[in-house]
Design a protein around this nucleic acid. Sequence first.
DNA 1: CACCAGGTCTCTC
DNA 2: GAGAGACATGGT
Length: 277
Amino acid sequence: MNYSILNNQIIIEGQKDFEPRHILDCGQVFRYLKTDSGYKIFSKNLFCSLIYVNDRVIINSINAEYFVNYFDLNRDYGEIKKKLVVYPGLSDAIKFGNGIRILNQDPAEVIISFIISANNNIPRIKLIIERLCTALGEDMGDYHAFPGVDALARAPIELFKSVGTGYRAGYLSDTAKKLADGFSLDFSGLEYGEARKKLMSLKGVGGKVADCILLFGFHRTEAFPTDVWIERVFTELFGESDLSGEKKSKILSAKFGDLSGYAQQYLYYNARENLIK
DNA sequence: CACCAGGTCTCTC
DNA sequence: GAGAGACATGGT
């Protein structure tokens, strides 16, 4: 990725591997707002504003280094796309979602957010997370930070219910307490399957949510999050539909190896935006 | 009033 | 292990 930094301002040249709209709308992140000239994007206790200037994208924040990593700018997505384009169905999906990147988000924020995402729809997920930040996150002036695990752990279950999490309130409270109590998120020495199993010991974290956490919070690209949309794509690609989601996930992860997460984002985004029903 | 939403949990066999 | 139901909430 061709970028430069000047006074905490990240300047990105050319958008063929960096398309903010696709990066943000492809389902990996919930805390962002469209503005007149671009976006405001919130992560942990920070935010950045992103604007288009001619054929450049300019990202302003108080911590450029954080957002260079957040936007995964030091990775060559041209190479990734070259490897993926040979698979059936990927060519169209890449064409449609060109410029997607896998963000490097805060692990705890991803865990809480994707527990909320289960059996829920995207607008409502965004709303609930926003209310959770307002209720428990540090007041940063004109926005609220994502709540730390300690604040989440101290909050009563009623608080989670009051922001609209419904029956997930207990899962969130329980998981927050485990995280605050030192549940290790250092998966660096663990194989994908082991890390996945550990995450699934958290309440509200099944196979699909664990894969989202590994992919979006730890950049473990062996993960192939398999939701209803990917299941539909699976049927289109393989003509097979009576396998369990867990089985399909395993097949896809094996097929794409450490390109799974990238393939999944292109396929998911394309399916959700273009597949009818 | 049903049905659905980036599924998971629990209880069965 | 695999298969049914339940599950809060809000929109269509």
